[in-house]
Every structure is written in structure tokens, then in C-alpha cells.
Design a protein around this nucleic acid. Structure first.
Lengths: 239, 239
DNA sequence: ACCTGAACACCGTTCAAGT
DNA sequence: ACCTGAACACCGTTCAAGT
């Protein structure tokens, strides 16, 4: 739990930083904001609440960041700048793409209340986004694809991870979730026209009703990699 | 432009619907809300603004929908219920998946200001979402994949479309956008450590700098389909 | 330069009162 | 049952004033 700015620590005199008190900085503001978002959700992040957390007047924040939008995109930048991937020596491009995707998924998942912002601000080609994508370009550049296809393939992988992270983030628990409620509803037959849905879910083995996100993520990645491999074979065939 | 509720059309007496005036319904409210969101963005949608649009007191809305959240999820439901796919007779499962993905992308793209909501509410297994996914299950069920894999493959396709729609929706223009700004920044070399990014973008032909969303979407879909095909071959090999 | 207090123009929603 | 008016507890942000 974060300490709320209480009366004792809140400054009273204007413009006079108390001796020994840390000055307000962009970094301190963003750290506090990230704490609020992680613990209580994006809805809890207000300029006033953030100021209280810092023991400061709401308006003081505006001297370091132009507004609330800037706080939020600063948060996205902060989170994205934590991206780290390590490719073991001699790893194949497939292993590297996997490592990248898992690192990126992990990054996004470590701040579930910010998924929507990360995933939708990612299109704005900020410095942070470029740094996130760099290792992915690196991996795919070693696959033998022509550069235009490296970009397309990278975009496809990014889009998939974004979509997956969104679905995963929307789920309350995270690790796995139970589809038996859905199954029961389908068996009750209250849904007209869902014939394929009913057939597919009905044919699931009992132990398959529990959806495992990790395996789902792997599966999609595997499909994408196989598909990219097929493109490489095609490209080589044209030589 | 939508007509604002002006004084002449706004009711004065409480609880007394004027003769000839349409009664307030959930449907009318959602239609008006969708109009506001499509024209002015989600940020313009407030209960007070919505009421003004309908020529009604803000509180009247609460008799038909429990709150603003309900208005927004009602909007998502409304949009999703417009999903229509037609599979030509004799079409392959690949063609069907393509048709589904294009229909879904089109649906989402027709309300760009709602993309974020559609894509993040989609995880909640509402009736509308089931109806959207049904034709996709139908297509993949005809591919020869075992049911558990039909679900995983469907999820992968959905995640990809979501991620793509998000990226596309975040872009201002839509149809295509120019990467030459990014290229120039990379060539200026102000970005350290972006070696692979620089190499890949640098190797692009001049006519490839313009990014075409339609072709990008096709490419990702093609990869996914090829990957799914590979899974089917594997499954058959185990028979 | 940095911080503050008061004020402005908004929000979503509750609640008691109207018809 | 359906609609309203006033009120409550909030918002983000501007602006002039403090030190």
C-alpha cells in the first residue's frame, strides 16, 4: 500500500520546498501514477488523487507534465522502456521471435490495468515503441525474409500479441479460466443459431473446458511461425 | 450533424409525454449515443449531452439503462449485432476464415471511435460476442482440426484481428499512411541501438514506404492460414 | 522557477417530488 | 411508470497571486 500524503508531510507555504524534501519531478510523478494505476486501476488516476499521493497541490503537477494525457502516455512510455529480451547464442529466428513475444506479453501483463493504453498508444511511433520492436525486427531480419516482409511479419506478430494481451487482461483471474458456465448455457440451448459453437464446445473433452492462457498464447505463436516459415520457402522457391 | 434538442422540442411538464412525441426507449437512446460517438468520439458521450440530443432530462435515461457503463456496453452489443458474413457455396474453410475476418474488421472499422470498447469488451462472453464468433467456428470446424484446436485457432484469428483493428483505428487517416517521417528520423541517426530497425527500413524500396493496411491485413491472415494448414497436416499424420 | 488557492465549466448519479 | 429539478461529490484545467 502506498502512503497517502497526510497533513504532516503536505507542504503549506507556496513555492518553498521544505528542507530535506524531495523536489517534484516528472519521474516521481510517473512513479506515483503507476502505483495508483497498478493498485486501483486507471479509473482511480485523477490529477487530484495523484497530487494527494505526492503530498502536493494538484496544480504543481502541471509544471512537470502538461496535463493528464501526458501523464498517461508517460506511463506507457515508462512501462515500455522496461522491455528486455535476451537471445541465447545460436538461437534460431523462431526461438528469438518466441522469446520476444513472451517478453512483450510479460511486460504488458505486469501492468494489467494499463493494457488498453499500451496496446492502443503503441501505434504512435514513439521512441519507446521503436525500442520495444527493435529486437523483433532483429529476429525476423535473420529469417531470410525480404525487408518489406520482415515489417509485415513483425506487424502481424505485434498485432497478435496485442489482441491476446487484451483478451487476457480483460479476464479477471488471468492464469486460466473456466468455460463451463458458457458450456452450460450452450447446452441449455437458450442460444439460437449457435450450431457450430455448440458443436465445437460440446465435443471438448472435460479436461479441456479449462482455458489455459499460456497454452493458448503458444498455439497462436506456433501458427504464426509456421506461416512465416511457409513464406520463406515461397521466397526461396522464386530465386 | 445531429439536431441538438432545442427548447421548442424539449418537454417541459414532468411525466407527460407530449402527443405525437416518440417515447424514450433503450433503442432510441443507443441510436443517439452511437451517433454522438461516431461523429465526435467517445469523449463527447456524456449522459447530459446524450439527454440533450434526445430532448430529454439527463435523468430520464436512467429509467431505460442503469448508467453510463450500460450505455457503452449497449453500444458494443448494438455494433456487434450488425455482424453479417456470407460464405459462398463450395467455399473452402480458408476462404471462409478470410471472409469472416474481413467482415469483422469491416464491422469494427465502421465505428472507429468504438474500436477500443469492442475489442476489450469482446472478452466478456455476451450473447453478441457469441454471435460474432459463430461463423468463425463454423469455418474452422470444417477444416479437419480437432475441436480443442478449432477453439485455439479461432482465438488466434480473433486476437490478430483485434490487434490489427486497434493499430488501424489508432491511425488518423486509415487507408494508408506514410512511414517517410519515421524513415527520415532513422536516417538522421538520432536513435541509438535501433540497428535492426534502421537496416530493415533502410532496405525498403521507395514505393514500399507507404503502408497499405489492406495488404498488411491480408498478409497476416495468410500467415495464420498457412500455419493452421500446417497443424492440420500434423494432425492427419498422427492418424 | 516552482508552487498554491480559488474559481470555472464540466462530470455521473442519488433522491425526493411531480404527473 | 415515467419523467424532472435540485443537489452531491466529484472531475481537468486556467489564471492570478504568492515566494
Amino acid at each position: 500500500m502506498m502512503g497517502r500524503g497526510n497533513d504532516k508531510s503536505r507542504r503549506r507555504g507556496a513555492g518553498r520546498p521544505r528542507a530535506g524534501q524531495e523536489p517534484l519531478t516528472r519521474e516521481r510523478i510517473l512513479d506515483a501514477a503507476l502505483g495508483i494505476v497498478d493498485e486501483e486501476g486507471l479509473g482511480a488516476l485523477t490529477m487530484r488523487r495523484l497530487a494527494a499521493e505526492l503530498g502536493v497541490n494538484p496544480m504543481s503537477i502541471y509544471h512537470h507534465l502538461p496535463g493528464k494525457d501526458a501523464v498517461i502516455s508517460g506511463l506507457v512510455e515508462l512501462v515500455c522502456s522496461g522491455m528486455r529480451v535476451h537471445y541465447p547464442d545460436g538461437s534460431s529466428w523462431q526461438e528469438q521471435v518466441r522469446a520476444w513475444a513472451e517478453a512483450y506479453r510479460g511486460l504488458v501483463r505486469s501492468h494489467p490495468n494499463l493494457v488498453l493504453e499500451v496496446v492502443s498508444n503503441a501505434a504512435a511511433a514513439t521512441e519507446a515503441v521503436l525500442l520495444v520492436n527493435e529486437p523483433l525486427y532483429g529476429a525476423l531480419d535473420g529469417s531470410g525474409l525480404p525487408p518489406a516482409e520482415v515489417l509485415r511479419a513483425a506487424d502481424s506478430v505485434v498485432d497478435y500479441v496485442h489482441g491476446f494481451a487484451l483478451a487476457e487482461g480483460a479476464q479477471p483471474s488471468g492464469h486460466s479460466f473456466d468455460r463451463s458456465e458458457l458450456l452450460a448455457r450452450l447446452e441449455a440451448g437458450d442460444a439460437d443459431g449457435l450450431t457450430a459453437t455448440r458443436r465445437v464446445f460440446g465435443a471438448l473433452a472435460r479436461d479441456e473446458a479449462r482455458y489455459d492462457f499460456d497454452r493458448g498464447f503458444d498455439y497462436g505463436l506456433g501458427i504464426l511461425l509456421k506461416g512465416i516459415e511457409a513464406r520463406i520457402v515461397d521466397a526461396e522457391g522464386f530465386r
